[in-house]
């Protein structure tokens, strides 16, 4: 993993810095101790001072600080925004898992969807408290308040994207990319934008780093699709295989195949997906229509676009290298 040790070391440092800031809000007198304990467990799972095993999955928390540093600011200046964004990241991930019917973590009763949703709500509200704290702390509210407003507006846009994702039955490539940009793309764009905005007032550099985040976020959505693909392929019963309908390989195939073949694929997907022979037919159609090449090509599109916008932002050396390493951590070199 390119730069993995350096990134892990940075995650450790960041969590040590922000721990007290978060804990402060989770030590409210007269609140039910169990709920606040669950919030702490969810946020600091594998990263508490008392259990200092840092999970590499937490690496996205570095984005605001690195983008701040990349444009000449101090990483530490983005700490509260990093904390808030990461709270939203965990909360969104929990809600997404509940809404998609995915497996939830087994600790702290999170496997109960109702509990999980309530935990996610607590994380969102804690994120809001951190934003308010940031606005109070910084004297120059002409920068902070518009950022907080934009953050909430774009989060609302993400919810709209999620609604489209949940309710649209016929996804095509155009709607796939629109939803991917609106959901995952926007969220990572925000992480980079708030970080860069804390380090510079140069609008063009902020825009370039925001675009880096956008491309990174869409790439992450494609990887989520691959994960969904794996879950479905390796599942003994594929009766829930409708989730796979919205993954990039299937969306591409249904959009590009001639009418007769598309109807055949739809028929395969709709009728008895638990039948292994039918699934073989689906896989055959996916390979024949070039879905793998299309997916790999689109991954390259978002990777190259992310690298190009990052380079154009002329990032400070160390932060730039770490942002490149974050991107490359998504690419496994050999099949």
């Amino acid at each position: 993993m390119a730069g993995g040790n350096e990134l892990t070391s940075r995650i450790t440092g960041l969590f040590e810095r922000i721990q007290d800031t978060i804990y402060k809000h989770w030590k409210i007198p007269d609140q039910d101790g169990e709920y606040l304990t669950i919030l702490r467990q969810v946020f600091f799972v594998n990263s508490d001072k008392n259990s200092p095993k840092i999970h590499f999955a937490n690496r996205w928390v570095l984005l605001p600080g690195l983008c701040c540093q990349a444009v000449g600011g101090k990483e530490i200046d983005a700490d509260i925004f990093s904390s808030a964004w990461f709270l939203y990241y965990i909360a969104a991930h929990i809600m997404d898992s509940v809404q998609d019917g995915d497996e939830l973590p087994s600790f702290s009763q999170l496997s109960n969807p109702a509990v999980a949703l309530n935990v996610a709500s607590g994380l969102f509200f804690t994120g809001n408290l951190l934003f308010i704290e940031t606005a109070e702390k910084f004297q120059n509210n002409s920068i902070i308040l518009p950022l907080i407003k934009e953050f909430n507006q774009k989060m609302l846009g993400m919810c709209d994207g999620q609604h489209q994702d949940l309710t649209t039955t016929q996804v095509n490539l155009e709607s796939y990319w629109r939803i991917a940009h609106k959901k995952s793309g926007t969220f990572f764009e925000l992480a980079c934008k708030i970080g860069a905005s804390m380090g510079t007032s140069d609008i063009s550099r902020i825009k370039l780093l925001s675009d880096y985040g956008l491309h990174l976020g869409v790439l992450i959505q494609i990887l989520d699709d691959l994960e969904e693909w794996n879950v479905t392929i390796n599942s003994k019963t594929r009766t829930e295989s409708r989730d796979i309908w919205k993954t990039l390989p299937i969306v591409y195939a249904l959009d590009i195949l001639p009418e007769q073949e598309r109807d055949e694929l739809l028929n395969f997907l709709e009728n008895n997906p638990d039948n292994p022979a039918i699934w073989d037919n689906i896989m055959q159609k996916i390979e024949q229509c070039g879905a793998t090449l299309f997916l790999l090509t689109e991954m390259e599109r978002y990777r190259i676009n992310a690298l190009n916008t990052l380079n154009q932002a002329n990032p400070e050396n160390e932060a730039g290298e770490n942002l490149r390493n974050l991107l490359e951590s998504l690419f496994i070199p050999k099949y």
């Binding site: 691959l226 390979e287 793998t292 390259e300």
Partner: peptide, 20 residues
């Protein structure tokens, strides 16, 4: 670049399941 990533060193095509 997609074409380059989509081919094994022996010239065979990489499958979706392999990528996933």
């Amino acid at each position: 670049r997609g074409l380059h990533r989509g081919i094994h060193t022996d010239g065979s095509k990489v499958s979706m399941n392999e990528v996933a």
